[in-house]
Amino acid sequence: MAQVITSYCKIKDQQVLLNGELVLAAPSGNADIHHFLRYTYEQLGCEYPRFFKMDALSKLCFCAAETMIPQSGIVNRTDAGDIALLFSNRQSSILSDKAHQETINDPWNFFPNPAVFVYTLPNIMVGEMCIRHQLTGDTTFLLSEGFDADMHHRYLDCLMQQGAAQAVISGWVEADENGYEAFLYMVEDSMVSAGLLPHTPGSLTALYHNSKILTYGNVD
């Protein structure tokens, strides 16, 4: 058995790519993250009113997961309790943290909003994914200054080798006032590895940095 990357999705610069192929591009002009996420949600065509309650980080992750998870068919192959989630980013829940901080800066005008505060934990994004896709396995959220392919690879390998998961949905999801990016990928054990992308730090680094260099079956 070999660990292979069976699917990946990237969202950046108003584009959504699945397995290296462009699946959605928002009309240029409005680069606002909220505007883009709403547009993407509508294009995805799913009915999920909870989406609107989420903060931008959770919405971004939702859009990437919604693009990748259903089409991958992973939930048909693997028990929901055997799929682990391993995520990381640099700035935690910065947008919600700032929004909450705004409400508590002035002791005389002090109205913290629970609907904002609940998103001041980066792992809520993962919790939202668990609810949406009914995943009940192990979940991890890490912080690091950049996407750490070695740490991701090592810990994901641990999860699978130690029997904590049969498959892992992993990624880097970051959103702040200057921009946003989501990189999600899925690792499973496979009997055949020919033509499939091996799960190595090198593959992760390549996929994270390049949106189009690797596609299945044919290399551009």
């Binding site: 934990l121 980066p122 991890t140 890490l142 090592r154 130690q162």
Partner: peptide
């Protein structure tokens, strides 16, 4: 090594122990 930083709400601490055990078991 670069530290591993876990931020998984209120289970962060216990998760740290579990992650450590897995990494040690794998010989990392």
């Amino acid at each position: 090594h670069k530290p591993m930083i876990i931020s998984n709400a209120c289970i962060s601490g216990l998760q740290g122990l579990i992650a450590a055990q897995r990494l040690i078991s794998e010989g990392a």
